[in-house]
Design a protein around this nucleic acid. Sequence first.
DNA 1: ACCTGAACACCGTTCAAGT
DNA 2: ACCTGAACACCGTTCAAGT
Lengths: 201, 201
Amino acid sequence: MTHPARRPMRCDAEANRARIIAVAREALSQDPDATLKPIAKLAGVGPGTVYRHFPTREDLLVTVYRSEVEALLDTAPLIARQDPRAALRHWLERLAAHGRTGSAASQAVRAATRADPENPYYTRIRLVLTELMAACRTAKQLRSDVTAGEVLLLMSYVWNLDGSSDPEHTACRVLDIVMDGLCPGTAPTHRVMSTQDSAMT
Amino acid sequence: MTHPARRPMRCDAEANRARIIAVAREALSQDPDATLKPIAKLAGVGPGTVYRHFPTREDLLVTVYRSEVEALLDTAPLIARQDPRAALRHWLERLAAHGRTGSAASQAVRAATRADPENPYYTRIRLVLTELMAACRTAKQLRSDVTAGEVLLLMSYVWNLDGSSDPEHTACRVLDIVMDGLCPGTAPTHRVMSTQDSAMT
DNA sequence: ACCTGAACACCGTTCAAGT
DNA sequence: ACCTGAACACCGTTCAAGT
């Protein structure tokens, strides 16, 4: 997506890049804060090579967990067939579900929800959220003045659920409050937050 | 507060500690992410001495910006004389005001609002917020099921206002939503968020 | 064009040796 | 009891030298 039709890399470069990604996924699954140097060594390349392909750590995260972020994006149109307010809540629950894990994948999702122009996914995340919100708005189930960027800001709490006993319960309760703030005077859609329903591709 | 009646330190230790704090305040005011080693050098002590007095960076932040955090705590009873809902909002605005600065002081406030048992201020922050909320509750201006810890989670957004153009405006709008979520069916208390009214000691 | 890997300028942290 | 400061085990990043 970042470089859709670049002229192909030299084949050794391509192979190195693929190997770095594979090794990084493995290493990051064990330690979400794994550093670049050991990854380079495991991939059998010099640190300069990793740095060449992925100038920053976030670039690597974005690439490795591309599919996770895109799964979140793809969920939106599927969800959107239900009641608009339930759809919005459901999608925000999917987002919140990443907060509890603390995995490297969740770091990538977190980066994609921050208002960072460097991140290629932020715009798309905001777009699908905007559409979910638009549906609510036409159904008069959403306050008219709020933007997707502001909702993403409100969701910042999901990355701070550590320290809470029963993070899942807390996430759900706080989302109740967020939804009530977003849809004043609407009957509250209640928690359905399933523990593990990641298989929604 | 941490050690109110410890037996006095040796006088050179006391002097070193005071000098470290003074130097750290100065260095952190210029660079919020200033590191410990240069601070040690500027204070004329070895790095081990800094580490002895402040085992972790947060310990140093807590000590240096003690007065800022306590100013926030002291604001609560003063504010509490107004309408409960306005008081709650006003205090949350004071909290949010720290989000925009990005200063080292704001890092200390941020640490004090995270559910971290190591931080001596979190309990007190939660306490004053609980009292502000209790006043709202008896006035039927707050949903009954929400806790102070959950409200602090909701306020996580204030630390992510960078990236937003006009952070002050955004902070205010998002706080509107939070307040509406907290006080459903209540007439919205509108934004008074003053730009700089830190002189409220 | 791409990779290597030593080198640079850091970081926090420790701990034997001093006073 | 407290401080010193060299030493340790890292970090990300760069860049001349290779292929």
